[in-house]
Design a binder for these strands. Structure first.
Lengths: 103, 103
DNA sequence: CGAATAGTTCGATGTTGATCGTACTACGAT
DNA sequence: ATCGTAGTACGATCAACATCGAACTATTCG
């Protein structure tokens, strides 16, 4: 069992436009909320979503490339976690504000 | 000199997806930053933007309909202000987090 | 009134992006 | 080695949207 991380921007490369654009999509917001409830990370497939697997992969890639989440490989599974520390450092309050919104 | 406000969603009608999507566009983010620096409001045309007047109007409408800003008519001018109170109440920290981002 | 100014609306165009199915890769188990 | 599972990559399609120019509205000024 190995563990490898997928490419993602460094903290200083994260741009607020990309983060906001990434978060401004209903399915992706749903993903973020699921991740926020699972600080230890969650397998992509375990998130209930109204889209097919390939669309799900597309959204996860978008979020990862924007710097919103981190993905590591664990066997055949991909475990994603929110990059809470980086986001809080860059945009203090942003994540909390978004997550406090009524669902 | 009359003053009339343009239609906009009530606070409880504002949806976080719309807000994020509205903010996730470079030109619109530029507008928001200008508004944040002008609490008393600013005329649309006085914001320096790399787009034509009609595109500017389009973005201002998007932001207004998302609930991000308020526009009132003042003579031939349209004065826009950030709906900071509403946004802070709905998503505490969100606006601050966004505005604290490096330009 | 007519002209100038500030801004919007409309229609067209090009680009971006969300979605899907299919084919593919990687890993684990039998 | 073969099979099943988890997920990604690719190509196509369709909808959403950013942009522009031109025509329009509304207000102020002369």
């Amino acid at each position: 069992m190995t563990t490898k991380s997928l490419p993602q921007p460094d903290r200083e490369e994260i741009r607020v436009e990309s983060v906001l654009q990434a978060l401004g999509e209903p399915v992706r917001l749903q993903i973020i909320r699921a991740l926020a409830d699972a600080p230890q990370g969650i397998a992509c497939g375990d998130i209930e979503l109204p889209v097919t697997a390939s669309t799900r992969a597309h959204h996860l890639r978008t979020l990862r490339e924007a710097g919103v989440l981190s993905t590591r490989t664990d066997g055949t599974r991909r475990i994603s976690t929110l990059r809470r520390e980086d986001l809080d450092a860059l945009y203090p309050g942003l994540l909390t504000g978004i997550l406090s919104a009524p669902r």
